[in-house]
Amino acid sequence: MAAQQQPLPFHFQFLAGAVAGVTEILCMYPLDVVKTRAQLSTGASQGIIESFRTIIKKEGPATLYRGIAAPILVEAPKRATKFAANEQYTALYKKMFGLEKVTQPLAVATGVSAGVTEALLIVPFELVKIRMQDPRNASKYFGTTDALTKIVKQEGPLALYNGLEATMWRHAIWNGGYFGTIFMIKDKLPKAETKNEQLLNNFVAGTFGGTFGTILNNPLDVVKSRVQGYSGEGPKKYNWAVPSLVTIAKEEGVATLYRGFTAKVLRLGPGGGVLLVVFESVSNFLRKNFMD
C-alpha cells in the first residue's frame, strides 16, 4: 500500500495555486470576455462563434484580452487562496468533527468556506474587469489603472465592493460544487498506477467539477455582472442577489439567468481540469524537490 502523501506547507500550497491560476486565465480569458458581454446584454443573445467574430471584426482581436490586467493581478492570490484555503479548512473541519478522512459532505463544506474566503479578496478586481469588458465603456476607460482611478474618483472607494454579496454566493456555490464533485469523481475513477493516469484522472475530475459548479452558480454570476456593471448612470436596478434574480427572471425570463453559460462552462469545465492538473503537478514537484 502506497504511503500517504505529506501535506504541503501553506506557502507551497499558495505557490502551486498561483501557478495553476495564471496558467488557466492565460488559456481561457477570451471566453470570459464573451461570457461577461452575454450576461450584461439585455438584447438578443449571440452564439459563442458569432460573438468572437463580432468582437474581432468590430473591435479587433486585442479586445478579447481587454481588462486582463485586473484578473492577472489577483489571479495568483485568488487561485492560491482557493486551494490553500480548501486545504486549511479541510484540516480544520476534520479536527473539529473528529474525522480521519475526507468525506463528500466535508469536501462540499470546505469548498464553500474556501469560496467565501476567495470572494472577499477578489471583489474590487472583478469589478474593474467587468467594467473593462463592457463594450459601453470602450471609450470611458483606457486601461486598468485608468478604470480604477475613475471608479474611485467618481463613485467613491466603496464602489469597488459593489457586488460583494453576489460574489460571495457565486464563489461559495461554485467551490462547493467543484470540490464536492472532484471528491466524488476521483472516488469512482480507477486508481491511477502511473503519473499520466493520475494527470488524466485529475483533468477528468476537475473538468466535471468545473462544469457542475458552473451549472449551479451561473444565475448568481449573471447577477454579479449586472450589479458590478452599474457605473452610477441612471437608476440602480440591481443590488442584492435574490431580488435581482427575481427581477431578471420576471422581466427577461428564467433563461436569461443562464446567459453566457456555454462560454463559461467551456472555460471553467476544461479550465477546472487545467487548474487541478497544474496544481497537482506543481504540488508534486515542490513535494519531491523541496521537502524531505
Rank of each mutant, 00 (worst) to 15 (best):
D221K: 07
E165C: 00
L31I: 04
P157V: 12
P235E: 14
T42D: 14
A249R: 07
A107W: 11
E197T: 03
L276F: 00
S41W: 07
G98Y: 09
P157D: 04
G17E: 03
N289F: 03
V223K: 04
Q154L: 08
V223N: 05
I25W: 01
F52K: 04
A44M: 10
N137C: 04
D32R: 01
L40A: 12
A91R: 15
F179C: 11
A2N: 11
Q6G: 10
A147E: 05
E24A: 13
P124H: 04
T103C: 12
Y161E: 03
I72D: 01
K101A: 15
P243A: 08
K236C: 11
G67I: 07
R136S: 15
V222E: 08
G273S: 08
T214M: 02
V108H: 03
Q5K: 14
V246Q: 15
T36G: 00
K288F: 02
T81F: 07
K288H: 06
Q154P: 07
E155Q: 15
I182V: 14
K95D: 14
M132W: 06
T145I: 14
P71H: 05
W169R: 00
G206F: 00
V128W: 02
L26T: 02
K288C: 04
L164E: 02
K264L: 01
Y161S: 11
G234W: 04
K94A: 13
G210W: 00
F212R: 03
Y93Q: 14
T42H: 15
E50G: 06
D187A: 15
V19L: 13
I122V: 14
R66P: 06
N202W: 00
A3Y: 05
G156T: 07
V204I: 15
E165M: 05
K150T: 13
P30N: 09
L127P: 02
A172R: 03
L40F: 06
V265W: 02
K236T: 02
M184V: 15
K237H: 12
P124Y: 07
I49N: 05
K57Y: 11
V102A: 10
V204N: 07
W169P: 01
M1W: 08
E126H: 09
T144N: 08
A114R: 08
F279W: 05
K264F: 02
V242T: 09
Q133L: 10
R53W: 02
A241D: 02
R37T: 03
Q46T: 06
P61N: 02
I49M: 12
K237E: 15
L160W: 08
F203C: 10
P219D: 09
K186V: 08
L99A: 15
H11R: 03
A138M: 12
T145D: 06
V254A: 15
G163W: 04
E59W: 08
C27H: 03
M1E: 09
E165K: 01
A20P: 12
A205W: 05
G176P: 07
L64S: 01
T36K: 03
K224N: 13
A255H: 09
K191G: 05
M184N: 13
V19G: 01
P61K: 11
T214E: 10
Q39E: 14
Y141V: 02
V112F: 10
I122W: 01
F285I: 05
V278H: 00
W169T: 05
P30R: 04
E24N: 07
